[in-house]
């Protein structure tokens, strides 16, 4: 990924910022330019909740380039408290202990790939809620 592309997407990756259609209220993550539901281009920033539950997951054993060192890792669909669903990695938990329906929360984690000049990249991952 180019440094500028990484920089452009920083709010969605660091703070789970999506957007919401001002006309029909539909929420999007990642943010969109046009609302596919009503066609409106009037969209406003929307901060997603950081908690939710794991709807479905899979353990990845074969990774794309740059991610091989992380295997096995968990990719899941997280349904946040407002009903929005995001695709994310599940972290801080042994793959055998991951359960469907598990309560999870967002955290910032390092990505295995680095940008030019050794710039380190971060993104959201979800971890089990610590009770």
């Amino acid at each position: 990924m180019a440094t500028s592309a990484y920089w452009r997407t920083r709010f969605q990756r660091y703070r789970l910022i999506g957007n919401r259609c001002k006309e029909c209220g539909k929420v999007f993550f990642p943010p969109r330019f046009v609302c596919p539901a009503c066609g409106s281009v009037k969209l406003e920033e929307y901060k997603l909740p950081e908690r939710g539950k794991l709807v479905e997951y899979t353990v990845v054993y074969t990774a794309p380039k740059g991610y091989e060192v992380m295997t096995p890792y968990v990719i899941g669909i997280v349904e946040l408290e407002d009903g929005v669903r995001v695709l994310a990695q599940i972290t801080d938990v042994d793959v055998e202990d991951v359960k469907e329906g598990m309560e999870v929360e967002a955290s910032i984690r390092r990505l295995p790939e680095q940008l030019e000049g050794g710039m380190i990249c971060y993104t959201y991952k979800f971890r089990p809620v610590i009770k």
Binding site: M1, A5, R8, T9, Q12, R13, P30, V60, T62, A63, P64, Y67, M70, Y73, I75, L87, A88, Q89, L111, P112, C121, T123
Partner: peptide, 10 residues
């Protein structure tokens, strides 16, 4: 790519 790439999903 702006969404998918950094999830590590395949």
């Amino acid at each position: 790519q702006e969404y998918f790439r950094y999830t590590g999903a395949t």
